[in-house]
Amino acid sequence: MTTEEKPDPRTLLNRETARIGWSELERHFASGAMVTVSHELDLVEVGARFIEDDKKAVAAWLEGGYLRRTGEEEAQRWSAQDATLWCVVVAPWVLVQEPR
């Protein structure tokens, strides 16, 4: 690989995706940086589209309800359950998805 070639963001994000407890994620919710990804979507693919600035795909997911800012009800439920979520950071966003 030459210095000009960039690795596929999916490969990088796959390595950086982890299950993280709500207590560690709560501050990101409080700052408004958390986005919930539905089970119909692949978390890594969504992160890659954010990195690639694929506005069309992101807009379609938002319109379809597959992607949304994490809401207060979700946050309260996750806090009460001390939930563990799949997470990947695509600065400034923290993308989360409930495990199946």
Rank of each mutant, 00 (worst) to 15 (best):
F29E: 02
S31L: 08
S31F: 12
A33C: 13
A33H: 10
A33W: 03
A33V: 09
M34H: 11
V35G: 07
V35L: 12
T36M: 09
T36D: 10
T36K: 13
T36Q: 14
V37A: 08
V37P: 00
V37S: 09
V37I: 13
S38H: 04
S38K: 05
H39E: 07
E40L: 11
E40A: 13
L43K: 04
V44C: 12
V46M: 08
V46W: 05
V46G: 03
V46F: 12
G47Q: 08
G47K: 03
A48L: 07
A48Q: 04
A48I: 04
R49L: 14
R49T: 03
R49S: 13
F50S: 05
E52T: 07
E52A: 13
D53M: 06
D53S: 11
D53F: 08
D54C: 03
D54K: 01
K55R: 13
K55W: 01
K55N: 02
A57E: 06
A57F: 11
V58I: 15
V58L: 15
V58K: 00
A60T: 12
A60C: 00
E63W: 04
E63H: 01
G64H: 08
G64V: 02
G64M: 10
G64E: 05
G64R: 04
G65S: 02
G65F: 06
Y66W: 04
Y66P: 07
L67P: 07
L67G: 09
